[in-house]
Computed example of a mutant assay.
Amino acid sequence: MNALSVITNVQIERAAAFPAKFADNPARAASLDTIQRRNAILDAVFYDVDAVTEEETPDLAFWLAREGAVILVPPSGADRLKVFLTAEDFLKGAPSVAPLAIAGVGSSAL
Rank of each mutant, 00 (worst) to 15 (best):
G68L: 02
A30L: 15
A51Y: 01
A27Q: 07
V10M: 00
L42Y: 09
K92H: 11
G106C: 00
R38A: 12
G104E: 07
A103Q: 08
A65I: 02
Q36E: 13
T53G: 02
I41T: 13
L60D: 00
G93W: 04
G93M: 09
A30E: 12
S76W: 08
A101Y: 09
D43E: 11
F90T: 03
F84E: 00
T53R: 00
Q11C: 10
A3D: 09
V73E: 04
E54C: 05
N9E: 10
G106Q: 01
A51D: 07
R37N: 11
Q11T: 14
G93P: 04
L81V: 05
E88W: 03
A44L: 05
L60N: 01
A44W: 04
V45S: 08
R80Y: 05
P75Q: 14
R38N: 12
T86H: 03
T57F: 00
N25P: 02
S108Y: 02
E67F: 09
N39V: 09
L64A: 07
A51E: 08
I71D: 02
P99S: 15
E54Y: 05
A109M: 02
A78I: 04
V52F: 09
F46Q: 11
Q36L: 13
D89E: 15
R28T: 12
A87Q: 12
R37P: 03
A15R: 15
A69T: 02
A101L: 10
M1D: 03
L100S: 06
I35K: 14
N9T: 07
K82C: 11
I35T: 15
V97D: 05
P26V: 02
F62C: 07
V52G: 01
F22Q: 05
L91C: 06
I35F: 14
L64I: 09
G104K: 06
K92E: 12
D79I: 06
A94T: 04
D79R: 13
A109L: 01
I71H: 01
D89Y: 02
D59Q: 15
F90K: 00
R66A: 13
A103W: 06
P26R: 02
A78L: 09
